[in-house]
Design a protein around this nucleic acid. Structure first.
Lengths: 233, 233
DNA sequence: TATTGTATTATGTATGCACATAATATTTTG
DNA sequence: CAAAATATTATGTGCATACATAATACAATA
């Protein structure tokens, strides 16, 4: 055999990908079954299976029992974006991070907040507004509500020392999250805080998280102008 | 044994997740090695490995050879967002979709476009500007450049019939993509097209895609005011 | 003491085999 | 001929074993 053996799942994956990229196998095409591919590549079926599973997870292949495997028609490449801790995000860019607490109060939520969490307005919550800096420039304005009946321990945390999000991430299990991204014109208050001009376009993330079915926190993150969220597929 | 045997990788995964969520294993903690877990659960090491690998891919565990496995300190819950085809996105919301071509020309790219693609300005590209409507309301303004030397076939496509993105997704393999999300103030032109007011905050997606190392297309998507991108984790 | 070499260890991967499961194809039955 | 029962098939999973690899701990050496 002049053929180099393809016997690691990574090389099987690479070879299958090559055939897709070079359009030897077209979108929608059925491809040979695992047994045949294993024979062709000179490896075990489990090895082929490992490679194919990886490609299916990436969205390049569609697999169904008995029906077989085909090249995906809409390679809906799923972009995975990480929900970062602001401190790390800032430090990763080589800037120094600090944050300051603008408000910290224990109160009952507004109707809007309560309804979005599915809670009564009588529940006691922690309301924290804070500003994150990157190299002493305003970077992010955060407006957060925390469900105190679920996360009572946060009462005793000094949020000047540790960011609320960072504390929550490390101290409460979060099983479910709801995130939306949008653009908004800076309000007068936001503009002042972020050293922007009123009406300037601001990137906004709204996030609600639950532990099981119990709402934990709802937060609105308003980034200083120029912020870009980036990902690769 | 009164213990129900945990012998499928899914149940191993569920049990390990339970221990993390219920804080039996804390963030940063080392957890037992695969051999011990296999013994405890009454299954093979390969089964434990399969489960642990899945959890590591989800970001809940951090694994290193010899060093062992620990609960991730920052459970970087990765949100996966699908890169949709606009027509489907609109139709999924129950609206009717149509789009109109504002410009279609074959020309050489601007310096900005060329440099972002890593191409010379002498390359011939297809420049398409189009407007997508949802229920006859402007939904998305799209400004796209396509590398004709890589995707020559698009010359003969009637883009009034099929959206460029949809055609590309179905007819060229895309192996790599670069996506960024940001907020911008609507320019006068954008405001007119999207029936917005000048300066209104607009959600923008910039996307570049490659096939292997060859750039295929670069596109800027400007959404009408009020657009939200949504995902769950 | 600092550096280099070596042993140890936990995860990573490959293999052969067996059986499970889902979906299709085929045959039987009313 | 249509509906139900049955066979077939491709992927999915589990197991035991073996060896590979990376990272650490520890000993040997200069």
């Amino acid at each position: 055999m002049t053929v180099t053996e393809i016997n690691s799942w990574q090389s099987v994956k690479a070879e299958v990908m090559r055939r897709i990229i070079e359009r030897i196998w077209l979108p929608g095409d059925m491809i040979p079954n695992e047994i045949d591919l294993a024979e062709e590549f000179g490896c075990a079926r489990a090895t082929v299976n490992r490679a194919m599973r990886a490609l299916a997870e990436e969205g390049l292949l569609e697999r169904r029992r008995k029906a077989g495997t085909r090249v995906a028609l809409n390679p809906i490449r799923k972009a995975t974006l990480e929900i970062p801790i602001t401190r790390l995000e800032v430090e990763q860019r080589g800037w120094s991070w600090r944050h300051s607490i603008l408000e910290r109060s224990e109160t009952s939520p507004s109707v809007t907040v309560a309804s979005r969490l599915g809670l009564s307005v009588n529940v006691e919550m922690l309301h924290v507004r804070s500003l994150h800096y990157a190299d002493n420039h305003p970077f992010l304005y955060e407006d957060r509500w925390v469900n105190l009946s679920e996360v009572a321990a946060i009462r005793d945390v000094d949020l000047k020392e540790i960011d609320a999000n960072e504390w929550l991430v490390q101290n409460t299990p979060l099983t479910k999250g709801d995130i939306s991204f949008s653009a908004a014109n800076a309000t007068k208050q936001e503009a002042e805080l972020l050293q922007a001009t009123e009406g300037e376009a601001i990137f906004v993330i709204d996030r609600t998280t639950w532990n099981g079915d119990i709402p934990v926190t709802i937060v609105r993150l308003a980034y200083a102008p120029g912020y870009r969220m980036h990902t690769e597929i």
